[in-house]
Each structure stands twice: as C-alpha cells, then as structure tokens.
C-alpha cells in the first residue's frame, strides 16, 4: 500500500526509511463502534430515516480512508513521488518536480513547490494544507488548478485549499 518511488524505480517500504504510520481505523481506535451506533439509535428513535442517516454518518467516519494517515519526515526532492492510500502529513518541503498523491487529505508542514493531488480517487471533499502554498499545480479530486504568477512570488503564510461549487479555492488559515 505504501510505495516510495525513487529514480531507480525501486519500491521501498517507508517504514524502512524511519517513517511511521498511524492507523485510526475501527479496529485500532479502541472506540466500540456498536455502542455509538446504539446511542445514535436512541437519539433518533422516532425518526427511522434520520436514524439511518446517523448510522451512515458514523460508519462513514470510521471507514473513511483519510483516517489512515502516513507521516513522512524529510524533503521530497525533484523526481520523487509519495503515493498513499489515505491521508499524508509531510514534515518537510515538496520541491518542484516532486509529487504527493493521496486518497485523502494532504498536510505539508513546510512548502509545497511541486505537485500535490489530494483525493486522487475522485474525492472532492479532500483538502490540502501547507505552511507555504506555492505549488506548480494543485489537484483535488478530478479538478486541476495552477496558481497565478504573482501569488507564487507573493507572501508566505499558512493556507488551505478545498473545493466549493466545483472550483478550487485557497484561503488563509
């Protein structure tokens, strides 16, 4: 599931590189899912449709892939690609020519100067956060955007990108 491609096309497990993985799935979370569903059932006793809705919502929360997150420490240099079937947190920079592709959200505690693709299987609810958002190209779900020249040369502050009405918006965090 975790692949890290370098120039030689060798696929290494990121665990060998000193990275670690946190899984907050149904099994690992320690939260007894059944109890929560029961509590929700009580709250929505009268309305069966609402009950169904809440059940669905809770199940969604616990089965969403973005709850599985990869933490990676280090800069991604030109030509490297970090692909993950969940969300990615990067402590470092994404240099021009490097890319992150994640099924969930992407948080970069550093600068994005390369290409990032959040929700790469088409999830438009995914978001991208960076301390310095200057990507060559930013993709969320099936939408691609590129930044105007003056923004790329402009000031540095934390920003996040998300989709609204089928467009990618970037806001100060």
């Amino acid at each position: 599931m975790i692949t890290f491609e370098n120039d030689n096309q060798e696929k290494k497990s990121l665990k060998d590189e000193g990275d670690f993985e946190i899984e907050v799935g149904v099994a690992e979370s320690g939260v007894p899912v059944g109890e929560i569903v029961e509590a929700a059932d009580e709250a929505a006793k009268e309305d069966t449709s609402k009950k169904e809705e809440i059940r669905e919502e809770i199940e969604n929360v616990f089965s969403m892939d973005e709850n599985v997150t990869l933490f990676h420490k280090g800069n991604l240099r030109n030509g490297t690609s970090l692909e993950y079937d969940g969300s990615v947190v990067l402590l470092g920079d994404v240099n021009p020519g490097a890319q992150i592709k994640a099924r969930g959200n992407i948080l970069v505690l550093g600068a994005i100067k390369g290409t990032v693709h959040a929700g790469c299987l088409g999830d438009r609810d995914a978001f991208v956060f960076a301390l310095n958002m200057k990507p060559v190209q930013l993709r969320i779900g099936d939408i691609i955007t590129r930044f105007p020249e003056e923004v790329l040369k402009g000031e540095i502050f934390p920003e996040y990108a998300y989709i609204e009405d089928g467009r990618i918006y970037v806001s100060e965090f």
Partner: peptide, 17 residues
Amino acid sequence: IGLRNLDVVMGLENRIV
C-alpha cells in the same frame, strides 16, 4: 525522462497533466 527540463524552459511546467 526523469530529468525533464524542456517544460521549464518553455514555461509550460504548470500545465502538465
């Protein structure tokens, strides 16, 4: 491949899909 530059020289890097 692997050390592409032509897109940068042409100023088209941000349009690559």
